[in-house]
Amino acid sequence: MPAGKKRPVPVVIAYVGGFRGQVLDPQAIAVEKLTHINYAFVDIKNGRAWLTNEKTDTTNFRLLNTLKQRNPALKIMISIGGWAWSENFSDAVLTEEGRSLFAFTAVDIVRKHQLDGVDIDWEYPGVPGEEGNIYRPEDKQNYTLMFKALRASLDSLEAETGKQYQLTTAVGGGKYFVEHTEMDKAQQYLDYVNIMSYDYKTNPTGIAGHHTNLYGSTKSEEESSADRSVKLFLAAGVPPEKLVMGIAFYGRAWTMPDAKARGLNRQALKGARGGGFTRLKDSLMTQGYVRHWDRRAKAPYLFHPQQYIFVTYDDERSTRLKCRYVKKHRLGGVMFWEYASDPKGYLLGTIHQFFNQ
């Protein structure tokens, strides 16, 4: 880096949920601590970007725009897709005409509501996500071509308004994602690549373990972790300054057969209720759950010694360590899912304090 040139401040991207059809309370968002709000989600219908809850979505866009009075540099993006609304991506971007239509309709939402760009959360190109999702081998190339079309459409809007617009994507953290995409080609159209470095463990009757760990908790080189995800995307050709590390503002939980190893990396009986971090901190930790720290994984977990319930999550300590990793490796920043899971702002406060100390 040239002498005298400061490193850019890491981005802090919040996914804010509007998919439930509720009207947001902008006063409840600590917008001074954010650089981006990704409004989740916009759906796809008949090949077009589509507001499922148009009445509340448009109200929310107006309300979110008022936050720029408190933070003029804030970027407000539409996030298209998500776990439940990714089934139509493959069809929508199958042809050049389809990609043009999808890009135009996505950017038209940005234009109409004076927003700042588009985020794509396709779960997942070339591989199944939610049951029933459409996917095909051609998704690998069409994923790249979709971003090319979106960038061209955003560039047209820039020429019209004189304003800059961003294009980002949320990506799965596993090898399957880089194997079924061309991230080295796709990244040239993207401002940021938001790694969903969480949900590493989700099977209710599988092995209970960390779902958002910074490092592996075992000696297996194949174990999922944020560090492994970052290295996969770096190796796939994404520059470090475009990579954004995900932080989970919620926990996942399992009921275990016994207290062996306090549930960590053991076979679970069934899923249990986890919940947002505010609930975990203010409620569970006073109800017989004991907090433990995995030094290898740099991750916390809770275990109830009588009920045999294991809970995996991010807390203030693991969040600080993720932020430290981002700064050390000169990554783009952090993002989190989702804002409403920690309404008291424990983790966002930790992020803000670390990046501004």
Rank of each mutant, 00 (worst) to 15 (best):
V334T: 05
A28W: 03
L269K: 10
D282K: 15
P305G: 08
D227Y: 13
G237I: 06
P343S: 06
F102H: 04
N46W: 05
E160C: 06
A248F: 11
E222V: 05
G333I: 03
K201T: 14
M183F: 15
R296V: 09
T181V: 08
A49C: 15
G271F: 03
N265V: 00
K260R: 13
H113Q: 05
V12Y: 02
P300R: 00
P300T: 07
T205E: 11
K55Q: 05
L63T: 03
T66H: 04
H36Q: 09
V311E: 03
L348R: 10
Q353W: 08
L280I: 15
E182T: 05
T350L: 02
T218N: 13
D227I: 07
T66Y: 01
Y215D: 02
Q69A: 13
T144S: 10
L64M: 15
I37L: 05
K242C: 03
L269E: 09
L157S: 05
A106I: 07
H210C: 04
V16H: 12
L234H: 02
A297M: 06
L145G: 05
D155K: 14
R48P: 00
V326M: 09
A259Q: 08
G251V: 09
D91E: 14
M285P: 04
T66W: 01
L190Y: 07
K328D: 12
R151I: 07
P240L: 01
A73Q: 14
I109Y: 03
M146Q: 10
R296A: 14
T319A: 08
E54K: 15
Q141H: 08
E316L: 12
W254E: 01
S225E: 05
V31P: 06
N88I: 00
L150G: 13
L214W: 04
V93F: 15
Y325K: 02
G276K: 07
G82T: 00
F249L: 14
V311G: 09
Y215P: 03
Q287F: 07
E338S: 13
W254F: 10
P137L: 11
N53C: 03
V31Q: 09
I195H: 02
P10H: 02
T169Y: 09
T144Y: 01
S224N: 11
P300F: 00
K281M: 12
N88Q: 13
Y339E: 01
Y215E: 01
Q267D: 10
K140Y: 11
R136F: 04
D116T: 06
R296K: 15
Q307C: 00
K68S: 06
P239M: 03
A186V: 12
K185D: 13
W122H: 04
Q353L: 12
L51Q: 04
G82A: 10
A28Q: 13
T58S: 11
L321W: 06
L67R: 08
D139S: 08
